[in-house]
Nucleic acid binder design. Structure first.
Length: 236
DNA sequence: GTGAAGATTTACT
DNA sequence: GTAAATCTTCACC
């Protein structure tokens, strides 16, 4: 978080010329595993239809490296209407609907058929809007929702950011005015917890074992924390 | 045309 | 912990 960038922004002559911190194609043009780790600490940005800006720091990701991965929608090169975005150039949004009522948000990586699932973000801006969006579909309303409950799961963050297949799927994050990524913190390696992926039991033991999930050590906005592993790391 | 499954979340016991 | 909610997508007949 370069201080000089901030001061540049402040000294900018016009308010309408905000420094563009948007991550570019070159950033996304990495292999899946590498992109997944690199995305931790970066900032997901969303401009809603009502022109409200929502931002959140990415704190948890999962790799679906592509055609070799049994758990991936693109296993064995399978390409369908649904997963087409996985085969688009790096930096495109792959959004799909699951269980009839939820969405998951992914970013395509360098390899054809590879993508990174964004599993959790830490709310930075637009808390009120997120609460409202999350409360919409809840039976008991959203008044008791805490910040850490707003985006601590792949479908939760989609609700909070108003990400739907209809609005976001196949959008180019390097160009879109509705959704993009900005630079954020660099997370050092020893602050990254690496574990197995969540919710893919049906894919078979071998792929379930793969260490393809990454999250920021100690961050309370992560969906599923591995306390044992975190303890081990903090001992070193 | 039909059927089964799903990278989840919520509410309830 | 367990179960219900809810419907699109895809494989196969």
């Amino acid at each position: 978080m370069p201080d000089d960038q901030t001061s540049q922004e402040e000294s900018s002559t016009s308010k309408y010329f905000k420094t563009d911190n948007r991550l570019k194609f070159e950033y996304f043009d990495k292999e899946c595993l590498s992109l997944s780790k690199s995305l931790l600490g970066k900032v997901l940005c969303r401009k809603t239809e009502t022109n409200i800006l929502i931002k959140g720091k990415i704190v948890e990701t999962e790799s679906y490296p592509g055609t070799q991965d049994v758990a991936s929608h693109s296993y064995q090169g399978k390409q369908t209407k649904r997963n087409g975005a996985m085969f688009m150039p790096p930096g495109c949004a792959y959004v799909y609907k699951i269980y009839g009522m939820y969405h998951c948000f992914n970013i395509s990586s360098q390899e054809s058929g590879g993508a990174v699932l964004i599993r959790a973000v830490e709310p930075l801006e637009g808390h009120a809007e997120m609460k409202m969006l999350r409360a919409l579909k809840r039976k008991s309303g959203g008044s008791e929702l805490k910040d850490k409950d707003l985006c601590s799961g792949p479908s939760k963050l989609c609700q909070a950011f108003n990400i739907t297949k209809e609005s976001i799927n196949e959008q180019d994050l390097t160009k879109s005015a509705e959704i993009w990524l900005e630079d954020g913190e660099d997370i050092v390696d020893n602050a990254i917890v690496t574990t197995t992926r969540i919710g893919i039991e049906g894919a078979g033991a071998e792929s379930v074992m793969k260490p393809y999930r990454f999250y920021i050590l100690g961050n309370i906005h992560v969906s599923v924390r591995d306390k044992k592993k975190e303890h081990e790391i903090s001992q070193n």
